[in-house]
């Protein structure tokens, strides 16, 4: 559905996006993951034809964004970082305008009504966009992107500034649409909650892509364990357990990170029970976004890197 080859964007000597290639299949929901300033927005702006690329090609459903911009743009619904709202219009006027602007062909009234229901905005039609709160503006932005029923949705940090309830709603809406979707975020949990695949970008480069499991390393055994207070040498007890490679104390009191060769949880329980130490908490240590970055950069994620 989306085909990106060797995409670059240079501003003078600054390489905002550096030779990125990826492709996205129909119906896939993909997350662009990266820290602020990684080049996510720049890439999205190029995908939607807002800015040009320095080199490389972008094809949306086979239509090149440079050579066939009209065809390509018809297939895209775009929600930029800041929803592009005309604050002096009411929601209904605004959606009406977007409908005309995009030259949509669906029956107007039903189509816009459907979108408003989908984005929970049915009761807001007559209100001025100026008076919308951040969350409502974001929804109006999504509604705008959905006008004309585009096959591809491109959402730039869609849940930023929303409260937790709105975030869940937003995710549900996006998931229920079943469209080919790219969304950018710098929050790992967001990406893993919604997306089948993640593309990690940093410093304008594509660092890794794959599902969360692939990126985290499926066959890895790392646990954090929080213990009750004890005066004996816990570290030596922990490292004596069969399969534990490394024990490191974490910042929180009596909490340790174990790196192991296999699932050590039963053995760990027995060993600690013997010493009369209670396990208050034991869980798999999920790597943070930073750790995934570090791993991807250092090459452990090599096989997932395209």
């Amino acid at each position: 559905m989306i085909e990106v080859t060797n995409l670059s964007k240079h501003y003078g000597t600054n390489k905002a996006v550096d030779n990125i290639s990826f492709s996205i299949a129909p119906g896939e929901i993909v997350a662009f993951l990266g820290p602020n300033g990684a080049g996510k927005s720049t890439t999205m702006n190029m995908l939607t034809g807002y800015i040009s690329s320095t080199s490389g090609t972008i094809k949306i459903d086979g239509c090149d964004i440079v050579n066939k911009p009209m065809e390509a743009k018809k297939r895209i619904g775009y929600l930029p970082e800041l929803p592009p709202l005309y604050l002096d219009m009411t929601l209904d006027e605004y959606l009406d305008f977007v409908y005309d602007l995009k030259g949509a062909t669906q029956p107007k009234k039903e189509h816009l009504q459907e979108i408003k229901e989908l984005t929970n905005l049915s009761h807001m039609g007559g209100r001025l966009l100026r008076n919308f709160s951040k969350g409502y503006r974001q929804r109006a932005g999504l509604a705008q992107a959905l006008v004309g029923d585009p096959a591809v949705l491109i959402l730039d940090e869609p849940t930023i500034g929303l409260d937790p309830k709105q975030i869940v709603e937003f995710r549900n809406v996006i998931a229920s649409l079943g469209k080919t979707t790219i969304l950018s975020t710098h929050i790992l949990s967001e990406a893993s909650a919604l997306c089948t695949r993640m593309i990690i970008i940093s410093g304008g480069k594509l660092i890794a892509s794959g599902s969360r499991d692939e990126l985290e390393g499926k066959n890895e055994f790392r646990y954090t364990v929080e213990l009750s207070y004890t005066d004996c040498d816990v570290c030596s007890v922990l490292s004596a357990v069969d399969g534990v490679l490394e024990v490191s104390a974490l910042e929180e009191e009596n909490t340790f990170l174990l790196t192991c060769t296999k699932d050590v949880r039963p053995a760990l329980f027995r060993a600690l029970a013997e010493k009369n130490i209670a396990i208050l908490q034991l869980k798999k240590a999920a790597p943070t976004l930073e750790e995934i970055f570090m791993r991807a950069v250092s090459g452990t994620g090599e096989e997932e890197t395209k």
């Binding site: 807002y50 009209m70 930029p80 030259g103």
Partner: peptide, 14 residues
């Protein structure tokens, strides 16, 4: 200023 040019320039209009 209001970034609405992003809407216009990414819509299928010249």
């Amino acid at each position: 200023n209001s970034r609405t040019d992003q809407l216009l320039l990414t819509a299928p209009v010249s």
